[in-house]
Amino acid sequence: MNLLESHRDHAEQTDDHSIRRWDGATSVFVSAAPRLFAIGLRVLHDADEAEDVVQETWLRWARADRSIVVSPPAFLALTATRLAINVTQSARRRRETSAGPWLPETTDPSVSPETAAARREAVDTAIRLLSERLTPAERAVYLLRMAFDYPYRRISEILHLGEDHARQLVRRARDHLATERRHQVSTTAHRRLVRTFLAAAQTGDLAELEELLAADVTR
């Protein structure tokens, strides 16, 4: 990949410690690249666009403060998913109001309050879109699968659904996100979901989010 080659050239100009850090970052990314491509392809259904997502994910990874990333594979998967969904939202923007980017960047304690607020607002807007257009089951499966790349077997265990049913719900969710339908959204429930989603994305601890989504499905 040309991007990787360019960064190795840059790494050669740094000290040994920096070279080791770059080599480690490159190794992590190369190992994750097939999964990232699969994420992009699953969301976009286009190999060229999926490859673009992988390359943009590399650029984000190269610029990130990796010292604060708890789980590099999770960070890369989240970034690729967010970028892929942004592509679909950009295409949809020509015919409907955009939900905007809806997956947060990794937590960065150095960001300004304004930036943090903007990220939260983006997530708030997008989750509201999911709640308005999807059933609780569709939303739960879609978030776990598309945002956190859960395998269908694990999703079926959390939500007490069959694997085939979970796959069908993801397909239905994609179709429903392209419609104009609106469900009424509870303000209290929405705020709780946004708060729980952000905490899961930022800390990597998804236990509370799993419980909340499962409870929504069984209500």
Rank of each mutant, 00 (worst) to 15 (best):
S90F: 04
F148N: 02
R154F: 01
P104A: 14
A74V: 09
S156L: 01
L129E: 14
E105H: 13
E138R: 13
A91T: 07
A74T: 08
I158Q: 11
R133T: 07
R145A: 05
S112V: 09
I85W: 14
T88F: 00
R171E: 13
G100M: 05
L129G: 12
R120H: 06
V69E: 08
A166Y: 05
R94E: 10
T115M: 08
Y152D: 10
E132F: 08
Y142H: 11
R119L: 04
A80Q: 03
T97E: 12
T88G: 02
R128P: 00
T135S: 15
D149P: 00
L159F: 04
I85K: 11
V87W: 03
P104Q: 09
S110C: 04
A84D: 01
Y142P: 00
L78G: 15
S110F: 07
Y152C: 06
A137H: 03
D149G: 01
R154S: 11
R145D: 03
M146G: 01
R172W: 01
A116F: 07
E121M: 12
I158L: 11
R133D: 01
H165P: 00
M146N: 12
L83M: 02
L159W: 10
S110R: 15
I85P: 00
R120A: 05
A74C: 03
V170P: 04
A91V: 02
V70W: 00
A99T: 02
E105V: 10
P72A: 10
N86M: 10
E132K: 12
R145S: 09
A116G: 13
I127M: 14
D108W: 09
I85M: 13
A99G: 13
A117K: 15
Q89N: 02
I155N: 03
E105C: 08
A140T: 10
R93N: 03
P73D: 10
D108G: 07
A126H: 13
F148A: 07
V123F: 07
V170E: 13
A117R: 15
L159D: 07
E121S: 12
D108M: 07
R172T: 04
G100E: 04
A118C: 02
D149R: 14
A126N: 12
R93W: 05
S156A: 15
Q168K: 14
Q89A: 02
A116W: 10
L78P: 00
T115H: 12
Y150W: 12
R94L: 11
H160M: 06
D124H: 13
R94W: 06
V70Q: 08
A84I: 00
A91Q: 14
A99L: 10
D108Y: 12
A122M: 10
E163I: 01
A166E: 09
L130K: 05
I155Y: 04
Y142F: 15
P136S: 06
V111A: 06
L134Y: 09
A166G: 14
A116V: 07
A140K: 10
R93H: 05
R154Y: 05
V141N: 03
A80L: 06
D124S: 13
P73T: 09
L78F: 01
S90E: 11
A147Q: 06
H160D: 15
V111I: 11
P73Q: 08
D124G: 06
L83I: 04
L144K: 07
L83F: 00
